[in-house]
Amino acid sequence: MYTPFQSELWQGRTDTEEDRPAPRWHEVVKAFDEDLKGLQQAPVVLGFSCDEGVRRNKGRTGAADGPDALRKALAGLSWQPITYLGAELHDHLYDAGTVNCVAEDMEAAQLEYAHRLAHIVQRGGLPIGLGGGHEIAWASYSGLEAALRQQGKDVANLAVLNIDAHLDLRKPAEQGSSGTPFRQIAEHRESHGWEVNYGCLGVNPSANTRALFDFAADKDVYWRADLDCTELDLPAIDLALRDFLSDKSGLYLTICLDAISAPFAPGVSAPSALGLSPNVVLRIIHQLRQMCDELSVPLYLVDVAEMNPRFDIDGRTAKLAARLIQACVE
């Protein structure tokens, strides 16, 4: 099922007293039209209302309400000029609506989400996925690959970087879940003879089994533990990410909010007792944006997963997620 753009979700204050433009996100958002072309990396939000993958993974459900909570948190943010590869581009934000999982049919929702995301990429937009459980990642990757292949672009050297407490490399049993998307991506890429090209920052060693680490080692996955993702580690992270991206044709960045310490991000499916500092995550995002410009590696796609309003406190997780999204696009 699909829910189109809902303007009532985008509400906020308007600063009419200023003598110069002072827009906020709710003032520049427009409904995405599939006939649009040449968007030049204009951000296009696309919701994925689903926590069936979380349920299958035995997590606490509620992430299906994440997309609308994120829209409401984004609405009041200050809107800054968008730049891409150092050039200021546009002052537009688009909302492509929300794909909803119905009757536990997660696979159908993933297919529809991938289809709609591919349309955004084909028209030059930068999709901003709003989850939903981390099963969004398999749908996101599938849509991105389909769009790039149709455009004749290099998919073999595409990189996937995950900021997450979990590697999410579980082997699917009968069905996928929020814990399997990067295993699905890895096996799909290998079936085409491509390198896996997967990295994960903020991994909690106590929340990932030996089997997952063995699989990661076998596939040459780059990962870094949560204890090694402090502000003091940022120079080393920068060097590692430059090496990770140096020969890549593009980047898909996915952020699982459960990577962040629970006092800052309580509204997630699996809160982190330790987790990363929001400052570190923001700085990593800023480093990545600058790095992509310097290395001419397009940032093709960003999504945020595991936003669970049912367990949020004072909207702090949604507000933090909005700040992270803002850092990705401005």
Rank of each mutant, 00 (worst) to 15 (best):
L77G: 10
S140K: 09
A207W: 08
R210W: 12
A118G: 11
A42S: 13
C50A: 13
K171L: 03
R289G: 08
A216D: 08
R210D: 03
A259D: 07
V155N: 06
L251A: 06
P181M: 04
L320D: 10
A96S: 11
A236C: 13
G152D: 09
P21Q: 12
H166Q: 06
N57T: 15
T254R: 07
K153G: 01
Q175G: 02
E294D: 15
H115C: 11
G193K: 14
A270H: 09
L295V: 14
C292V: 13
L130Y: 09
S177R: 04
A186W: 01
Q110S: 04
E52Q: 12
D214I: 06
Y113H: 06
F215K: 05
G38C: 05
F244G: 03
A259L: 08
F264M: 05
G250R: 02
F264E: 12
V281P: 13
G133L: 04
L158G: 01
D51E: 05
A146C: 10
Q80I: 00
A216Q: 05
G47A: 07
S246F: 14
Q11H: 11
N57I: 01
L158Q: 02
L111M: 12
E52Y: 05
R13F: 14
I128C: 10
S269T: 11
N279T: 15
F5L: 03
W10K: 04
S49T: 04
